[in-house]
Amino acid sequence: MPRIYWPAGFVPGFADNFASNEIVMKTMTADQAWPWLATPERWPGYFPSLSAIAFWRNDGPLLTEGVCFDFTVKVGGKAYPMHNRILECVPPLPSDPTRPARLAWHSWRGEENTPERFEVHHIWLMQNLEGGRLSILTQETQIGRAAVELANTHPNAMVMMHQAWLEAMAAAIRQATAG
């Protein structure tokens, strides 16, 4: 498994909440799947818990390192606006299909040093596997009072949401690439 780069304070087991989800698709490549992850404006089309995607400045529509954007996420019937900054963006490399594609962003809401502050580090890895398969892994750590509350929900709301996101994205990719 490729190494995941966790910023200080966001290492799983030390952060307040952690979610890890993976899906393996057959007859799929990272090249085919990457645009469905790297184009946030597509996300609400297959994952309705995310909405109101808006890029800062003249960023977008594709995610690249340093890009900032906002979205609103619904969790447990409540809507939460989030600010996001891309920290790592390594698209698939057709000349090296063994190199994993990587995407990571930092999300936040609320003022710093307040009880309302909620921060997230969200990573995605896409890795071509032998036999024409593709692994899509997403992991997220969270810090803040809201993260503690989410960690205490059973089943874990973030694990459930990320699995729904992965499955819906996989279904959208399969439908678009069916031929």
Rank of each mutant, 00 (worst) to 15 (best):
V24K: 11
S95V: 06
A157E: 07
H154G: 08
Y5K: 12
R133K: 15
A15Y: 05
A151I: 05
T72S: 06
F55V: 07
W43Q: 01
I136P: 03
A172R: 11
T72L: 02
F69I: 08
P155I: 15
P7D: 11
M25V: 06
L37F: 10
M169A: 14
D70A: 10
L134D: 10
M126H: 05
P40V: 04
A8R: 09
P61M: 05
M126S: 04
E41G: 07
F118K: 02
A151R: 11
P48E: 00
A104F: 03
T39I: 08
R57D: 13
A170D: 09
Y46P: 01
K26C: 11
G45M: 11
T64L: 10
N21P: 09
I23Y: 03
L150Y: 03
N58F: 05
Q163G: 07
A101K: 03
I143K: 02
W56K: 15
P35C: 13
R145W: 08
L50A: 04
Q127L: 14
D16S: 14
A170K: 11
I123C: 14
P91C: 05
G179M: 12
T98G: 06
P48N: 04
R102M: 13
W124L: 02
H83I: 07
C68G: 15
C89D: 01
A176G: 12
E149F: 12
R133A: 15
F10S: 07
W34C: 01
